[in-house]
Design a protein around this nucleic acid. Structure first.
Ligand SMILES: NC(=O)c1ccc[n+]([C@@H]2O[C@H](COP(=O)([O-])OP(=O)(O)OC[C@H]3O[C@@H](n4cnc5c(N)ncnc54)[C@H](O)[C@@H]3O)[C@@H](O)[C@H]2O)c1
Ligand SMILES: NC(=O)c1ccc[n+]([C@@H]2O[C@H](COP(=O)([O-])OP(=O)(O)OC[C@H]3O[C@@H](n4cnc5c(N)ncnc54)[C@H](O)[C@@H]3O)[C@@H](O)[C@H]2O)c1
Lengths: 211, 211
DNA sequence: AAAAAGTCGTGATGTTATTCACAAATTAAT
DNA sequence: ATTAATTTGTGAATAACATCACGACTTTTT
């Protein structure tokens, strides 16, 4: 909403900065330079300064950045004051791993409902997250606008349509399927097989000792 | 090795193209245009043609691409004729999900060994993949050059050092830790919390009905 | 045989992201 | 006080990537 001039590449790095600032703060560090931050998050220091500068002059020349101030700034920028509820569809191997992981530690994100088609899973819960039948999506999904998709790829398209109908406008898709969505819906793909394969490709085809 | 002029962005899309070509081939399709492919993988058709063109003239004007030929071409480009062995470190929630997943279906990649520090896991196997103690890395890792890292983030740095010493030069890192490696080692980060958080950020801060 | 439709490959252009490099400001040291 | 050392914020340069748009060629239709 606010000012949508933040480059996408920058926006993707914000959570990373936020996490490291949190670490620093917990360690009691009071100030940090773009150079230090750069070494920690492996992003060029000029890029970090540029990223920060989109939000105004957050640092002080010759000093660096005040950890607490910066942390507070990003906390509100990333809406960390309110918990974001997320639904998970497909409580299989991958889905279960996510359900057992607490994203709440550093990020105010919580998976509050899971859905599956397997009758033996429906009605149970995993680490406190209840598993509903996927047919109950319509009744149970209200208010939730982000979903994690970990169903078999053959089901991805059909489930996506349901999700979108129920008002979901952000999907984190772990299936290999490239799903079709209306323009107002944002999909991030995480394709493990592709990641692995492209890593192997890079190793075999790129010079070994310079990036 | 060969010609290292392939842009990184292109290289990352190759496995995706490969997978869809495989699908098409299995469906018995003989030819495909960049337009059709574009709709399937959600990549602009001009980008697809450009990507392919780095490898020479693979298509025919007015016709499109021969599925079988293209598939064969990418199979060898992606070294799909030989199986790539991969090790997994940390057979916890996430690691177990990966061990149960067969990457072999479409990609000639196989996790052949897993390592963990938990004595109750060592000596067992998951879906046929044996779990060794992490202290056995040195003896057991020979020949393997790619590793998947799914240990607690506090362990990431120490394990990475061991892996690198043993000759691993590709790491798929699922921990939130930003690990330090020598120049010749390639790390791909998959940071689930960051993905989720940046997705939420985009939804809240970007115009809703145009990309 | 001719016309129409389809499609590639790519030069040109547009867009987004990264990095350099330095003046201006601040802090730290002498 | 003065000088030296830091470090930001940013204009300008560079690099990487995506897209447009069209000539050239092929296939299909009439
Ligand atoms: N596990 C991995 O390491 C891995 C790696 C790469 C990709 N993936 C992809 O992630 C997805 C999930 O993988 P997984 O290993 O967890 O598979 P899985 O089979 O263990 O889990 C799928 C779950 O979805 C449920 N399901 C099936 N149809 C459903 C429906 N219509 N509605 C709701 N739930 C339904 C199943 O009951 C099951 O619990 C797959 O698309 C897979 O290709 C997984
Ligand atoms: N599960 C998720 O959804 C999720 C999400 C985001 C990030 N992550 C990250 O992925 C990593 C793994 O997550 P998880 O949920 O599978 O955790 P987990 O605790 O279930 O698994 C970690 C495994 O590593 C093993 N281990 C501990 N120390 C080890 C060592 N020194 N050498 C070898 N193995 C060792 C443990 O015995 C355990 O089996 C963590 O870094 C976590 O932050 C997980």
């Amino acid at each position: 909403m606010e000012q949508n001039k933040i480059p996408q590449a920058t926006a993707k790095r914000l959570p990373l900065y936020y996490r490291f600032l949190n670490n620093l703060n917990q360690q009691g560090k009071k100030r940090v330079s773009s150079k230090e931050l750069s070494e920690a998050v492996k992003v060029d220091s000029a890029t970090i300064r540029r990223d920060f500068s989109y939000f105004g002059a957050l640092g002080k020349k010759g000093y660096g950045y005040n950890v607490e101030y910066l942390l507070g700034f990003f906390r509100s920028t990333l809406d960390q004051h309110e918990v974001t509820e997320v639904a998970l569809i497909g409580a299989g191997n991958l889905g279960t791993a996510f359900l057992k992981y607490s994203f709440l530690k550093n990020n105010n994100i919580r998976i509050t409902k899971a859905f599956d088609a397997d009758p033996s899973k429906v009605g149970t819960d995993i680490d406190g997250v209840p598993i509903y039948h996927v047919d109950e999506l319509v009744e149970q999904l209200d208010g939730i606008s982000v979903a994690i998709l970990t169903v078999p790829s053959s089901e991805a398209e059909a489930i996506t349509e349901k999700l979108v109908n129920e008002g979901v406008n952000g999907i984190l898709n772990f299936t290999p399927a490239r799903i079709t969505v209306p323009q107002h819906v944002r999909v991030h793909h995480i394709d493990l097989a592709v990641e692995l394969q492209s890593l192997v490709y890079f190793l075999k085809h790129y010079p070994l000792d310079k990036e």
